[in-house]
Structure formats: structure tokens, C-alpha cells
């Protein structure tokens, strides 16, 4: 043991992370190359649409509602320190739509969808179902990965849009019922304040985060080692990677969209 061993450890994990990013990039490239080449699997795509999109609605709705409400309370309390309580509708709208909506929906999708994709594909890997697919002349990336990633790219922006609306509605409920805002004025203020680009950026973020979430689930599932432990490790790694990448991508996208 030397004093340098923590440094060496940091170096090793940095190298490991770089190697993983390289492998993920190759995997993403291979997935993209299969999107437009037949055969296509509409049944798997439909199942993925329902699993990723429709069944995520309750969790997305709850997350957004409570966050919008809490946001209104905080902005009211914070704004009161310099007599700016009136900005609640505007700040709730911009905070929800530009940042919290996409990020929280992205993280909930990482928790709910990435984990289930990773566990499912990893189980298929360790029980030789992936090998069986290959022997049945079916490409695992085409059959398992492409439908899930496409479904996430399409449905997560929609979920983010719904989350934005419900989040703003959460702020509206707290604002009008607890903080004494006039209902009509609250809505008017929100609508007047939001610009096209606020909403477009929100949906673009949603697509990016959805793609990341599904891709991480597939990547770590396919890379799973043998046994139940392998499945567990793959699932954990996929959720961690998806969450970190979503937050990093959020920073980069915010930087790209809104920095002047």
C-alpha cells in the first residue's frame, strides 16, 4: 500500500468509465444502424410503447403534481423576502417546463423503465434466451433493443409534456387554494409568460433522456454476467448510468439552449 493508491484508484476508475463510454457509443451506433433495416418487429414495438409510455403515466403524474406544489410554496416563501410573491406563476412555469419536468420525468423513467429493461434482458442473457434468439435467425439488437429505444424516444417527450402540464397545475392548486392567487390571473400569467422555445426545449430534453434511459437498460442487460448476481449488478449499473447521464445531458442541453 502506498500513499498513491487512492490516486491510482481514481485513475483506474476514470479509465474504466472512459472504456464504458466507448462501448456505450459503439452500442448506440449499432442500434442506430438497425433502426431502418428490415425486418421490423411491430408487436415488440407496440408492447414497448405501452410498457414505457402508458404505464409510466401514474408515476409521472404524481411526481410532477407534488413537485409543482412544493415549488409554488418555496417560490412564495423565497419571493416574500424581497416582496416578489407575485412571480409564483411565472417561476413555477419556467422551473417546471425548462428543468424540473424533463429531469424528474427522466429520472423516474430511469428508475422504472431502465431497471426493468435491464433486468429483463439480463435474465434473457443468463438463461440463454439471447443465444436462442440468434439461432432462430433473429438479431437481438433489432428484436430487443431497437423497439425499446424507439418507443422511449417517442413516448418520453409526451410524458414530459404531460408532466409539465400537471406540474404547473400542482403550482396552480397550491397557489390558488393556499396562497390566495386569483385562479384566472394565475392561468393568464402562466400562459403569457411561457415561450415556444421553453416548451420545445422541454420536449427535446424528454426525447434525449428517454433515449438514454432505454439505451442504458439494453446495454447493461446485454452485457450482463452469468447468474442472479449478474442480473442484479447489470440492473444497478444501468440505473446509475442512466441517472448520471441524464443529469449530465440536462446540463449540456440547458447550456446549449439557454446560455447567452
Amino acid at each position: 500500500m502506498s500513499v498513491l493508491s487512492p490516486v491510482a484508484a481514481i485513475g483506474r476508475s476514470t479509465m474504466g468509465a472512459l472504456a464504458a463510454i466507448g462501448r456505450i457509443a459503439i452500442f448506440a451506433g449499432r442500434t442506430a444502424s438497425h433502426v431502418f433495416r428490415p425486418p421490423f418487429y411491430p408487436r415488440e414495438f407496440a408492447t414497448a410503447l405501452a410498457g414505457i409510455g402508458y404505464f409510466s403515466l401514474p408515476v409521472v403524474g404524481m411526481t410532477a403534481l407534488f413537485t409543482g406544489g412544493a415549488l409554488a410554496l418555496q417560490i412564495f416563501a423565497g419571493g416574500a423576502r424581497f416582496n416578489a410573491e407575485a412571480v409564483v406563476p411565472q417561476i413555477v412555469a419556467i422551473g417546471m417546463v425548462r428543468e424540473l419536468g424533463p429531469v424528474l420525468v427522466g429520472l423516474m423513467i430511469a428508475a422504472r423503465v431502465t431497471s426493468s429493461i435491464a433486468a429483463e434482458i439480463a435474465t434473457m442473457k443468463v438463461t440463454e434466451q439471447i443465444d436462442a434468439l440468434v439461432t432462430l435467425s433473429t438479431h437481438p439488437i433489432k428484436y430487443l433493443v431497437v423497439p425499446r429505444v424507439l418507443a422511449a424516444l417517442i413516448t418520453v417527450p409526451i410524458l414530459v409534456g404531460i408532466g409539465d402540464v400537471i406540474g404547473v397545475f400542482g403550482g396552480y392548486l397550491v397557489g390558488t387554494l393556499r396562497l390566495g392567487f386569483n385562479p384566472a390571473a394565475y392561468i393568464q400569467n402562466t400562459v403569457d409568460f411561457l415561450e415556444f422555445w421553453d416548451i420545445a426545449s422541454s420536449l427535446i430534453k424528454g426525447a434525449a433522456f428517454g433515449g438514454i434511459a432505454a439505451l442504458m437498460g439494453c446495454f447493461y442487460g446485454m452485457a450482463s454476467e452469468r447468474g442472479a448476481q449478474g442480473v442484479g449488478r447489470a440492473t444497478k449499473a444501468s440505473v446509475v448510468a442512466a441517472a448520471v447521464l441524464i443529469l449530465a445531458a440536462n446540463f449540456l442541453l440547458t447550456q446549449a439552449f439557454f446560455s447567452v
Partner: peptide, 25 residues
């Protein structure tokens, strides 16, 4: 190929497993 552990697709019905090749490709 018959795999040692069966390797059936557990998200598909038995008949869809058997007919896997006949349903696609």
C-alpha cells in the same frame, strides 16, 4: 437447437415459442 436449459422466451406463449421462426423473418 434445443438448449440444455430450454431457453424458452418467457414473455411469449408456448405456441409462439414453438412457431417463433414461422411468425417472423
Amino acid at each position: 437447437m434445443l438448449f440444455q436449459g430450454g431457453a424458452l422466451f418467457d414473455s411469449l406463449h408456448v405456441w409462439e415459442n414453438v412457431a417463433f421462426r414461422l411468425l417472423r423473418g
